[in-house]
Nucleic acid binder design. Structure first.
Lengths: 331, 331
DNA sequence: ACCCTTCATGTAACCGGTTACATGAGCCTC
DNA sequence: GAGGCTCATGTAACCGGTTACATGAAGGGT
């Protein structure tokens, strides 16, 4: 037997559908007697309201669409956790869609959200600004995270990679390091690019000697790059890796070469993955959950009619551990 | 201006809504000429179909509801990743809802899914079987993961904790260990309970001496328990912790006491968190993403009309590393 | 007794799609 | 040239709710 509808309830309670609707939504002008009859019918039929139909007539779904690219473990779960916390607290559900590819695929993924959600959170580091604007359903409020640009059209949130990278360089210089190596991330990744650029300008500003090695955010690339550097006989006393994974790889290369950390070489990463704490790696803490939470907060503001076109920069925090400074507090 | 509807498109293309609908859905009986007119109108108006309305008339949403309890990082992202992979490949979106509490809260969370999704994946280790059955919207296909029971009513998926624990004990015994300590997890947790029971029966079967210490799945509890054991002067040569976190705590206690791993004490955990690989901890690998993927596969089967009431046990895999066996391959 | 208000309830339109059925044009056949 | 067929297209009901407006009974004031 198909699920009961509001008309079945009405029939059973011997009232009209309008009355059932009013009773269920707690409107005032329903007599106590009728309310009871309706409640009984609902229980007897096991009636559960059809949220889809409801949102069609209300023109409000109570859901927020989240479109993310392929993300590795920690980052994905943290950002979704932050969103969920804020969203569920205000009665919103999250409709998740992973945007694997760009172009037409992206357009479809975004369009699939129309009529299912009240607003969108989009994270698309791999899409061009124009491409993204064209793919977004018009008239659907959207907050953009770590996206290449389009900052004027939609409210957006970005991680302040520059401030993070600068903090690391300042720290290493303050420790008296004279020659700093930067293990950079992939060139298509906007975060990697910003960290690389900020590293260069901060090092230049300090007038400290530096060099940039190419990596791909994977542990192995960090190990390989540093091992090669040591083999070449290059002198250096500090490493700033564009993420923690590569920093860990670098650490292994240093150990293998018999170099002491931090005495001979100080090292710092970026992200503060859980592993970083365990091995005492200095890093830049990114409060990912907070990014997600803020995105929802701002979307909610838009949904309540407050227009918003500002960009929000999230300043990450330097965490000093024993890989760069032995005086760092034990954790 | 509000979003364009199919009627706006019909007006602009000078055809009826039925024709527009047919053209958009690629039905055959639409002339080439009309098809073009419709496509033009769609482009000019920036029309995007309203998925909510569509699913109302089709009685099919193309979405799957996922209701999870509060999960820590790795587990959450992995299981969602597995589901997403399988779901998006078949054109389904995931509607996410975290079920923070039990009872009435749980019922509301589940009911909110009615009319929004075609089926449900529910993970509710903290709910009683009856409570869950009562809260599920009737007539909504559901697959249950790691849930206390109700195995007859709905298709379900469980992790084979018994097989995992047995494999660890077999391994430790094969290494010649004579006295094994089990660091157990919290008593309300079904996974912890199953591992504990399986440990006991496997150890008994081998006739090996053993003891169970209480823990709570947190690193600290493992360290405390083992430190206390050593202080008491108890003799032992192996530890099986109910999860990796506690195993890591135990490792720290062993190091602090100057005991060598694995020479003096072999140790193994459960879960295979990323950290385990880094520190060479033997453990039981749980393929979390696979659990999620299988849940979607089975739900899809139900949605295609294949009824299903079976329970599926997922056998985890023993991963031997240097914390129990120095001959283990380096990773 | 009459009119006006208040209040619970019912009727029906609407949200934005899909689709069964009706319609009518064009062509073929005998 | 009448009847029958195919085929593109239109009309309107329907999915399951919400809600503006209509209705009619009860109560109050004079």
């Amino acid at each position: 037997m198909p699920d009961a509808t509001i008309r079945d309830v009405a029939k059973r309670a011997q009232v009209s559908v309008a009355t059932v609707s009013r009773a269920l939504n707690g409107l005032e002008n329903v007599s106590e007697h009728t309310r009871t009859k309706v409640a009984d019918a609902v229980r007897e039929l096991g009636y559960v309201p059809h949220a889809g139909a409801r949102s069609l007539s209300l023109a409000r779904t109570g859901a927020i669409g989240v479109v993310l690219p392929d993300l590795h473990g920690e980052f994905f779960s943290e950002i979704v956790r932050g969103m969920d916390r804020e969203a569920s607290q205000h009665g919103y559900l999250l409709l998740l869609s992973n945007m694997h590819a760009g172009g037409e695929q992206a357009r479809l993924a975004l369009h699939a959200m129309r009529g299912r959600v009240d607003g969108l959170i989009v994270m698309a580091p791999h899409l061009g600004a124009a491409e993204l604007t064209a793919a977004l359903p018009p008239a659907l409020p959207a907050v953009l995270i770590n996206t290449r640009s389009d900052r004027e059209q939609h409210p957006s949130i970005h991680l302040d990679n520059r401030a993070g990278a600068r903090a690391v360089v300042d720290h290493l210089v303050a420790l008296g390091r004279k020659r700093i190596i930067h293990l950079a991330g992939p060139a298509q990744n906007i975060d990697a690019l910003e960290r690389r650029a900020a590293f260069r300008s901060a090092a230049d500003a300090h007038g400290v000697s530096h060099e940039i090695l190419e990596g791909d955010f994977e542990e192995q690339s960090g190990e390989t790059a540093i091992a090669a550097l040591i083999a070449k006989g290059t002198e250096f006393d500090a490493i700033f890796a564009a993420n923690d994974n590569m920093a860990i790889g670098a650490l292994q290369a240093l150990r293998a070469a018999g170099l002491r950390v931090p005495e001979d070489v100080a090292i710092a990463g970026f992200d503060d993955i859980p592993l970083a704490r365990h091995i005492g790696l200095s890093t830049v803490r990114v409060r990912i959950a907070e990014l997600g939470e803020r995105a929802i907060v701002r979307l909610r503001a838009m949904l309540s009619g407050r227009p918003d076109h500002s960009d929000e920069l999230h300043a990450p925090e330097l965490v000093v551990r024993s890989s760069s400074d032995l005086r760092a507090p034990r954790t």
